[in-house]
């Protein structure tokens, strides 16, 4: 039982927090700009590497530089939108999807160009996990990550439910033309969407880097699980994305638990395949997700 909690459930929740932060951005962007942002994973990579530079310069721990990495990534995302996505918004959305593929590779190659290809990490040396109640082992960084994710999600909730901009954002996601005639500024909301989406992506990237290491493809590998989480929660529903992220994260980790016999149910090397499989199955049988999000046709 303890082995289950220590080695499967807790890593699942940690991974789930990372997916959640990514999926909220994908879900908001899909809801407001109406396209699947394929560069979202690479925005996570960018955030993680920007944080690495802050860590090196300041000497602070990675968790402390998260706000700076979020701000920098958000600024870059607004710039990318201005130069690459905005000129295409008049045409068919599918063209923006194709453009976002290109942006994904441009971000990744820029990261690899500026920061190099060697695997990096924020902290060196072995960190001993903290032990609670004699047997519950939790790594310190995992606590920071989960608490960090909860704080960010709580802030997002306050933003979406209490501020004028947040309400306008939800209105635009629900019904863009109705929002427009009530005086919601299209450009301003889109900019805010990018700030929030990219900011949360950066945080997810830093957390992923804290949990494992930094590589050029770390974000791309997360893209499909994040899409899976966003679809599971229902596109355009940021709150659904939280549940979706947690379900996908936990499902991935639990898939290699020895449920039926002594052997893992699924070889750990296929762990990432679980998210892909859930995503494909959802797309086919329940494209609206578990919480009846919208389906764009």
């Amino acid at each position: 039982m303890l082995e289950f909690v220590n080695f499967y459930l807790i890593p699942g929740l940690v991974l789930g927090s990372i997916y959640t932060l990514g999926a909220i951005g994908v879900s908001l962007l899909f809801g407001i700009l109406r396209f699947a942002h394929f560069a979202h994973g690479d925005m996570m990579t960018l955030g993680a590497y920007i944080a690495l530079s802050f860590v090196i310069v300041s000497g602070w721990p990675a968790i402390a530089v998260v706000p700076f990495a979020m701000a920098a990534t958000a600024a870059i995302a607004v710039g990318i939108d201005h130069f690459f996505y905005r000129p295409l918004r008049k045409g068919r959305t599918i063209v923006i999807v194709i453009a976002s593929f290109g942006i994904a590779l441009m971000i990744r190659s820029a990261v690899q160009f500026f920061w190099g290809v060697q695997i990096e990490s924020y902290q060196t040396g072995i960190q001993r996990p903290l032990i609670f109640f004699d047997s519950l082992r939790i790594a310190e960084r995992h606590i920071y990550m989960v608490v960090g994710a909860i704080v960010l999600v709580a802030m997002l909730h306050l933003f979406l439910s209490r501020t004028r901009t947040g309400k306008a954002m939800r209105a635009m996601s629900d019904n863009p033309s109705l929002a427009a005639i009530t005086g919601v500024s299209h450009t301003q909301i889109i900019a805010w969407t990018w700030v929030i989406g990219a900011g949360l992506a950066a945080a997810a990237g830093v957390f992923l880097g804290m949990d494992t290491q930094l590589t050029g493809t770390m974000g791309w590998n997360l893209l499909l699980p994040v899409f899976a989480a966003a679809i599971l929660g229902g596109i355009g529903k940021p709150y659904g994305a939280i549940a979706g992220g947690m379900v996908i994260g936990v499902a991935e980790e639990l898939s290699s638990y020895p449920w039926l016999s002594d052997a893992p149910l699924l070889a750990p090397s296929y762990k990432t395949g679980v998210a892909f499989a859930i995503m494909v199955a959802l797309l086919i049988w329940r494209p609206a997700g578990l919480f009846s999000g919208r389906v764009f046709r």
């Binding site: 699947a36 892909f276 797309l283 494209p287």
Partner: peptide, 13 residues
């Protein structure tokens, strides 16, 4: 599936 979803599904596969 709609085009973006088809893209996701085919990448996933």
């Amino acid at each position: 599936l709609r085009s973006d979803y088809l893209a996701m599904a085919t990448i996933g596969i």
